[in-house]
Design a protein around this nucleic acid. Structure first.
Lengths: 347, 347
DNA sequence: GGGCGTCGGGAAAACGTTATCCCAAACCCG
DNA sequence: CGGGTTTGGGATAACGTTTTCCCGACGCCC
C-alpha cells in the first residue's frame, strides 16, 4: 500500500528499446529530426509496455518553456469568473496547456502578491480577470507595482492577457462595456423609464466605470437622467448589491424607477433586497443587470441584462495570448441587450 | 518590446553573492543545513537585487516532488463545483501549493483521458469532484480503467481524494448524503407533504443515488411514499432539471405535491419549468433541492434545500490528501436542512 | 572511384534546481 | 594539548528531459 514505484523515465524506455536516450526522446516527442521507422516503433512499444508518461516539469526545464497558463480571478465561486474560467480551461485543453488557478478575493495587494508568486511557475501565459487596470488614471501603489511586475514578466517572454476590462497598453479580451450599457440604457428609456439608480463597484474598476458611463449616455439619449446621488458605490458582489439597494430603499426610493446593477450578481442581490423590503421587483421597482450569468433567467422576475458570452471571452483571452496575430480574438466580443420581466414596459 | 531577458537563476545569485551554488540554494530555500548569517544575508541581498524567483519546475524535478494539486471537476461553471474549487484553491494557497484545473464535461471517457494526461504533471495530489466512483456496483469499462489508473497513481506516491461521493476504498471528503436527504424528507413530511417526485441524475452517480435513497427513507418514515415512476432520471444539470419537470407536468402532475431535485441547480431548473408551465412554484407545487448553492436563497420562492458547506468540503479534500492522520477532515461535513418558501407548510 | 553532401544514431552538454559528499576549520573534553 | 566530533562551505552528482555536436554510413555526381 505504501508502495512507491516511481514512474518510468525516458531512460527506462530507451534501455528497454535498446536505443539511446536521444532517439527515445526524438521518437516520443516532436522533433525536427527524423528517426528510423523501425527504431521509432521499438521506442513506442517500449513506452507502451512501461506505461511511460513524459514528465512535464522536466520537459519544461529542458525546453525552457512551460505549458501552463496561469489564471487569476477575483473570486472563483462568482459565476462571472467561473464562466470565464470554463472558457479558458476549454481552450487550454485544446492546446494541451495546463491551467492553474488562483483567487485574489478582490484585494489588490493580494493580487500583486499572487502575480509575484506566479513568476515561480514560469507560466507561458498569464490571464488576469477582474483586475484593476494599470497605469492610467489615479493608480494606487499596488496597481503601479502590479503593472511593473507584469512588464517584467512580459520582458522575460511571458504573455499577459487581461480579460473584461480595457487597457490600451496590454492585450485584452474585451467587450464593449460602454456600448453594451448604452444600448441597455436606450432600451430601458424606450420602455418608458426615466429615473434610475445605478449600483456599481468602487471607482477603481474600469469595467464598472465603463458600464456606468455607457448607461448614463444611453439613458441621457433616451431622455432619462442620473443624479450623482443615485450612483451607489458598493462592493462588486451579491451582498454588495443587496446592501446598497436595501439601504437606498430604507433611505427612501425617492422616485427611482429602476436599479441598474453593473453586474448580474449585484442585480440578483438587488432583487432580494427589494423583495425583502416588501416591494415587488419588476412591478414596484425594476432591476437590470449586466453579463447574463446563467441564473439571470431563472430568478424572478427574470433579469433584464446585457448578454456577454463569458466562456467565449475566456477562450479569446487564451487565443489572444497564443496567436501572434490576434485575428478576431482582438475584436470585442459582441453583447446583446436581453429584455426580461424585471423591467416591464412602463406605461 | 520583444525583449527576452531570461529571469535570474540561482547561479546568477550565487555569483553575485560570491558564494557557491549550494550555499545560495541553502539560504534561499529551506534546508536542514545551517548557513552562516553573513553569507545568508549576502545571498538574500543578491537575490533581491537580481529579482530572483526560484523556478518551481526545476525545483520539482530536483526534489522529485511537485507542489501542484490537480483538481478535476465535471463543470467549472456549475456553482456546486466552483464553490468546491474555491475551497480547494483557498486551502492550497495556504500550503503554497498550486492548483491546476480541468473539466470532464460529465463524460466518463473524458475523465479517464484527463486523469491519464494528468500523470504527466506529476501532481502531488489529485482531487476528483463529481466523479463516478470506482469498483463496486455495475462499473463501466471507463470506471474500471479510471480506478486502475488511480491505483497506479497512488502507487507512485500520489494522493487521490474524492469529493462528494463516498468510496470506501479511497480517501473521500464527504458529506452524509443519505442522512441529509433523509432529514429533508422527514422535514417535508412534517410540513404535510405526502406525494413526491424526485428529479435525479442517472444511476451511475453515487451522490445522486444516496440522496435519493435517503430521501425515500425520510419520507417513508414521515408517512409519505415514492413510486418508481416518480423517480425522474435526467442529466445532473439545470437544463436536465428543467426538462424533467417540464415533461412531467406535460404528462400530468398526477397528484405530485413536491419535486425534490437531488441538487440545487436542477431545482432551479425545476422552478423555471414550473413557472413556464403556468404554475406557481411553492403554491401549486413545491420544490426542494440539495447543496444550498449561493443563489438558492435568491431565487423565487427561495429554495428549501440541504445546506452543504461546499468550500469547506473543498478545503477538507485537500487536508485529507496532505495530512497523514486525517483528523476531522475525515468525518463527513455537517449538513443542515434549510426550509424556505419553496415548500410552504401544507395544511 | 573519389570527394562530398545528407541522413540519422549516440554521446554528452545543457536546463535550474537539490542533495550528497568531501574536507578544512573550529570546538569540546579530558 | 591532542584526538574526536561537530560545523558549514564548496564541488559535484543527481533529477528527467531536450538539444547540440560528432561521426560513421550512405548515396550521388562527375
Amino acid at each position: 500500500m505504501i508502495g512507491s514505484r516511481t514512474p518510468a523515465t525516458l531512460h527506462d524506455v530507451a534501455r528497454e528499446a535498446g536505443v539511446s536516450l536521444a532517439t527515445a526522446s526524438r521518437s516520443l516527442n516532436g522533433s525536427t529530426r527524423k528517426v528510423n521507422e523501425e527504431y521509432r516503433q521499438r521506442v513506442l512499444d517500449a513506452a507502451e509496455r512501461l506505461g511511460y508518461t513524459p514528465n512535464l516539469q522536466a520537459q519544461a526545464v529542458a525546453r525552457g518553456t512551460s505549458s501552463t497558463v496561469a489564471l487569476v480571478v477575483a473570486d472563483i465561486a462568482d459565476p462571472y469568473f467561473s464562466s470565464i474560467a470554463a472558457g479558458v480551461v476549454a481552450e487550454a485543453d485544446r492546446e494541451h496547456l495546463i491551467v492553474t488557478m488562483t483567487a485574489t478575493d478582490r484585494d489588490p495587494d493580494r493580487e500583486l502578491d499572487i502575480v509575484r508568486q506566479l513568476r515561480a511557475q514560469r507560466p507561458r501565459v498569464l490571464v488576469l480577470a477582474g483586475s484593476r487596470p494599470g497605469p492610467d488614471g489615479a493608480a494606487s501603489p499596488a496597481q503601479l507595482a502590479l503593472d511593473a511586475e507584469l512588464d517584467a514578466y512580459e520582458l522575460s517572454g511571458g504573455r499577459v492577457v487581461l480579460v473584461g476590462g480595457e487597457d490600451a497598453s496590454r492585450r485584452t479580451a474585451t467587450l464593449d462595456n460602454f456600448a453594451g450599457a448604452a444600448a441597455l440604457g436606450r432600451a430601458l428609456a424606450g420602455l418608458g423609464y426615466r429615473r434610475f439608480a445605478v449600483v456599481t463597484g468602487d471607482e477603481g474598476l474600469r469595467t464598472a466605470e465603463d458600464r456606468l458611463a455607457g448607461f448614463r449616455a444611453g439613458i441621457l439619449e433616451g431622455g432619462g437622467g442620473l443624479a450623482d446621488t443615485d450612483v451607489l458605490r458598493t462592493p462588486f458582489t451579491r451582498d454588495g448589491g443587496y446592501a446598497a439597494v436595501r439601504d437606498r430603499i430604507a433611505a427612501g426610493l425617492d422616485g427611482v424607477e429602476l436599479f441598474f446593477a453593473t453586474n448580474d450578481v449585484m442585480a440578483v442581490g438587488a432583487l432580494s433586497a427589494i423583495r425583502d423590503a416588501g416591494l415587488a421587483p419588476g412591478a414596484d421597482v425594476a432591476v437590470a443587470g449586466f453579463d447574463d450569468i446563467p441564473v439571470a433567467s431563472d430568478v424572478t422576475p427574470p433579469l433584464t441584462t446585457v448578454r456577454v458570452p463569458l466562456a467565449e471571452l475566456g477562450r479569446r483571452a487564451l487565443r489572444l495570448a497564443l496567436d501572434e496575430d490576434a485575428g478576431d480574438a482582438a475584436t470585442p466580443v459582441t453583447t446583446e441587450v436581453v429584455l426580461r420581466a424585471s423591467t416591464p414596459p412602463r406605461g
